[in-house]
Design a protein around this nucleic acid. Structure first.
Lengths: 203, 203
DNA sequence: ACCAAAATCGAGTGCTCACTCGACTTTCGC
DNA sequence: GCGAAAGTCGAGTGAGCACTCGATTTTGGT
């Protein structure tokens, strides 16, 4: 189907390097929002990091809100693609591997922690994203715990839903303490200890 | 000792109602910082809440930083004084009672959660406060767990220091999820479940 | 090679920010 | 009830904010 068949409209697509540029900008914005938060970070800050004019950024992301949403999406795809964490091996392996990977990318953890708390405010542009994310995490881990329960690996009296919310909470809280004082908290070790308390030992 | 004995300096103290005014301002600032964070909240916002001019606030708190530090101090004394949580009855009672009280003061919890994450940045005026606070909390709860261990109430294999950091983390993380979706998370119940997993049942 | 769309940017725009200044009013020790 | 300090505030100040506009350069399909 040619453009002529579609009528006289022929909008051109972006240039070859545009996608790359976009990613550069989003990566810089991730740094800025991690350091100063969404409210505290500015287009000018991001422009200084990427070495472009503030106006050019606005060509790619018309509003600050658009930039934030791109950053959140970027974080998801980046962490999933680059961590190489095996799925379908149970939540224990998944969570421990991911938490160990996270130690190497403190910037992304800081980004997540800072934006999550900022997003408590209902009018924050990231609010819906984080409400959905926490809901999905709880649902996913609850299913993981239920799978373990069906193998008899869940200790008696442990509720999969409570354990799921607690796992998410524990993980987030540990990362917060780790960001505040990296030498004092060992996130993967504490998560491992939690699993030891909730699950029966593998024979 | 009279002022004459001290020389010709005679600085007058504040008016009778000044302390009250200060507290009104700090309470308003707590609301504002809870809703919009430190960076997102302004003197003008606070002035609108208390019904004073922005300039008058600056008479009591010369910089925004001063106002924040007053807010943090206020939160501590207010929560300790008004919650009426019994100390010296072990960390279990203390934590559960405090967490149940917190459900009734969501504003103060939001303030704490928002400011803690904002304070990850080392140049944030609340940074030192929260680093110290997390350290003190971990140390205090670790001592609490050790006291339980000496009574044989800690399950074998549980490290008091890891349990202390985990308790703080779990609590903070649960409050974050509760603020995002109040209907979906029960903070005191999840904390009770954690104690059940870590401690042996009372006979 | 053409040329329209895409990309870049300098120069604004109106707004809000933390904070200052100078003048006025209120308090309260004497 | 005098007077000086404490309190109050309107009117700035300079900086930074997200975002706009108009003009110029770069690209790439034809």
């Amino acid at each position: 189907m040619t453009t002529e068949e579609l009528g006289q409209r022929r909008p051109r697509g972006p240039y070859a390097k545009s996608a790359e540029r976009r990613e550069t900008i989003v990566a810089a914005a991730s740094q800025v929002f991690a350091s100063h938060g969404y409210r505290g970070g500015s287009f000018q800050d991001v422009a200084n990091v990427v070495g472009m004019s503030q106006t050019s950024l606005l060509h790619y992301f018309p509003t600050k809100r658009d930039l934030l949403l791109a950053v959140l999406e970027y974080r998801d795809t980046k962490l999933v693609n680059e961590s190489g964490v095996p799925l379908d091996e149970g939540i224990v392996c998944e969570v421990l591997a991911q938490s160990e990977y996270n130690v190497g990318v403190p910037g992304l953890i800081e980004l997540y922690t800072v934006l999550a708390s900022e997003s408590i405010s209902p009018d924050h542009p990231g609010h819906a994203y984080f409400v959905a994310r926490f809901g999905n995490l709880r649902a996913g881990y609850a299913e993981g715990f239920r799978a373990l329960a069906s193998e008899g690996r869940l200790r008696p009296g442990v509720d999969p839903d409570v354990a799921a919310a607690s796992l998410v909470a524990l993980w987030d809280g540990l990362q917060l303490q780790w960001l505040m004082a990296p030498g004092e908290v060992d996130v993967p070790a504490a998560l491992r200890a939690y699993f030891d308390q909730v699950l029966t030992p593998t024979p």
